[in-house]
């Protein structure tokens, strides 16, 4: 079937029905026009992933492989996968990044709790598209084990790297600091053309998007700290009662 994902027409050739159900909100109304890319999973890829995943169903394993194969092809189409949670507030997107266990879902949960009209674009694996006016972050069917996200896109206005700390503080990161942190949160393809495209896209992302290091606890003040620095707005004026 053909799906509209991240502004691309993607043909997914799956064996297991799992993926059809998983991607149904993204099914294209146009099943005949040409596609931007097509993906399937080879027997070897499936076996290798099955070995790592162990207990998961064949459909789940195939589904993981399909997204990885999509994401390895999209750099040549000006897009990259980012391991992050992207929230939207007032028409602008903010990405929160950190190794698992650093409190990404806790912090984004605090945004949802305390700030009105916030929505999750993708809670785990958004696709970013480079445009003339910066990057767009897309929701995709793949959005982490909590399944939080929607079929929408938002202009990315900030990258916020999280670290746990007793006191809340935030500062801007310089490009070299962002580079080291960002590379652990992207997917590197194997073929030279897509690797080169990935590196160029990451460079553009670093040079065009403000990045911050948020050291935070789990209090409301943590939300105020990241919100005010990234949006430039006064938290007290907008927060929920």
């Amino acid at each position: 079937m053909i799906y509209d994902i991240a502004g691309l027409r993607i043909k997914i050739e799956n064996r297991c029905s799992y993926t059809e159900n998983f991607c149904k909100a993204y099914l294209s109304k146009d099943q005949t026009s040409p596609t931007d890319l097509s993906v399937k999973v080879t027997v070897d890829e499936f076996r290798a992933e099955k070995e790592i995943s162990g207990n998961f169903s064949d459909g789940y394993v195939e589904n993981i492989c399909l997204y990885r194969n999509i994401c390895k092809q999209i750099p040549l189409l000006n897009r990259i996968l980012l391991h992050a949670a992207v929230l939207e507030y007032d028409g602008n997107g903010y990405a929160f990044l950190g190794r698992s266990g650093t409190g990404k879902s806790t912090h984004t949960g605090l945004w949802l709790k305390h700030i009105p009209n916030v929505r999750i674009i993708n809670g785990d694996k958004p696709i970013l598209q480079a445009t003339e006016n910066g990057f767009l972050a897309y929701g995709t069917p793949w959005m982490g084990k909590e399944g939080l996200g929607c079929n929408a896109s938002t202009p990315l206005k900030g990258l916020c790297f999280l670290e746990q700390a007793p006191e809340n503080s935030i500062r801007r990161l310089i490009p070299s600091e962002v580079s080291a942190r960002l590379f652990t949160q992207i997917l590197l393809p194997q073929d030279e053309e897509n690797v080169v495209a990935t590196l160029e896209l990451v460079d553009r992302l670093i040079m065009n998007t403000p990045a911050y290091l948020l050291r935070c606890n789990i209090s409301e003040e943590a939300v105020q700290t990241s919100f005010e620095e990234m949006t430039g707005l006064n938290y007290q004026n907008i927060k929920k009662n």
Binding site: P175, S176, L182, D191, D203
Partner: peptide, 13 residues
């Protein structure tokens, strides 16, 4: 490639 002002090497193929 230079990424964010830093030289980065990545294996391919």
């Amino acid at each position: 490639r230079v990424v964010g002002g830093e030289s980065v090497v990545v294996p391919v193929g």
